[in-house]
């Protein structure tokens, strides 16, 4: 099943399970979703459960907050993460604050699903990975699954969760195929648990979302050098499972954190800071960070390729780190 179909199945099952669950977003009904995640659901559940909205991100994200405050469970789709910026006030100043600011007397059980990612020449305003912004904010939960199983299981967890969840998908992942839980098992994937997707002994690569796929390919490539790479899929950014990362790095003594977003003040910066403190004695080299080029994404294919945090870029950083430690030739 594809990542896209896994998401759709989770939405379908949750709509069927709980009458308080409803979907809301631009083009998610008749148009079947800009990336077709919601295809068929409007026909099946009707316009009340699958509500089409005008181009009013601030308006309908805010409407999600209000509906959630009095007991519904809105699942809001933002067409791509770039378009959440007009709704930042609702996400950061409102959704994230409600429970605490009102003394715990009311909460916001809302999911915002939105894809980030780049690689199809969509250019500066449509190629960002902004999840670090949200992972910075107390009151929000932020998850970014990398495969169909987690996409399915974590979306179900998100919808049943009582807090606002930013559910970050990825444009390139939508067609990725993989296993999903069997029908009728109602298996979910909890938040706050990273997944060691490849065991290794020489280097830990920590990533989330599509970058996990890249990290796995890099791990394969290093096999011919006799290097064993461990790959950690964070899955969840807030809450963050740093303990799994720490345990891994204590074992491998080397770490690289990779992400599609910009590395400066990024996810990798956070993890590197924590690893340096927690694994100070064990580390054989400073934690390496790799992210996308710190420039608005250009259009021309060659420039885009140069900007992306692709396999070659991450692989080269890993090789430099290993060479510094004398494990491979530079």
């Amino acid at each position: 099943m594809t990542y896209r179909e896994a998401l759709r199945r989770a939405l379908d099952e949750e709509l069927a399970r709980d009458p308080n669950v409803f979907l809301m977003g631009e083009e998610i009904g008749r148009f079947e979703g800009s990336y077709k995640v919601t295809a068929g659901l409007w026909a099946k559940y009707g316009g009340k459960r699958v509500r089409e909205t005008p181009i009013s991100e601030e308006g309908f994200v805010g409407a999600g907050v209000g509906a959630a405050m009095i007991g519904l469970r809105p699942v809001v789709e933002i067409m791509t993460i770039n378009f959440i910026v007009p709704a930042m006030d609702m996400v950061v100043n409102h959704a994230a604050k409600v429970r605490s600011m009102f003394g715990g007397k009311v909460g916001v059980p809302m999911v915002i699903r939105t894809p980030g990612g780049a690689g199809a020449q969509l250019t500066a305003q449509h190629s960002q990975s902004l999840e670090a912004w949200f992972a910075h904010v107390p009151g929000l939960k932020v998850v970014a699954p990398s495969n169909p199983w987690d996409a399915y299981g974590m979306l179900k967890t998100a919808i049943r969760d009582d807090d606002p969840v930013l559910f970050v998908e990825n444009l390139v992942l939508y067609n990725l195929t993989g296993e999903v839980p069997e029908e009728g098992t109602d298996i979910t994937v909890p938040f706050g648990l990273a997944n060691v997707v490849r065991e290794g002994t020489d280097l830990t690569i920590i990533a989330h979302s599509y970058t996990v796929r890249r990290a796995l390919n890099i791990a394969d490539r290093f096999l011919q050098d006799g290097i064993s790479v461990e790959v950690i899929d964070l899955r969840s950014l807030r809450p963050l499972d740093i303990d799994t990362c720490i345990a891994s790095v204590k074992k491998t003594t080397r770490a690289l954190v990779a992400e599609e977003g910009w590395a400066t003040f990024g996810i990798g910066a956070e993890i590197a800071a924590r690893l340096h403190r927690a694994c100070f004695d064990e580390l054989d080299a400073p934690v390496e960070r790799v992210g996308g080029a710190e420039a608005p994404m250009p259009y021309a294919k060659n420039l885009e390729l140069a900007a992306l945090a692709q396999e070659d870029k991450i692989g080269a950083a890993a090789r430099r780190l290993l060479a510094d430690c004398g494990l491979v030739d530079a």
Partner: peptide, 11 residues
Amino acid sequence: GHLPIAVGAAL
């Protein structure tokens, strides 16, 4: 900021 939220409650 609370206007869209009030709309959501009405929804």
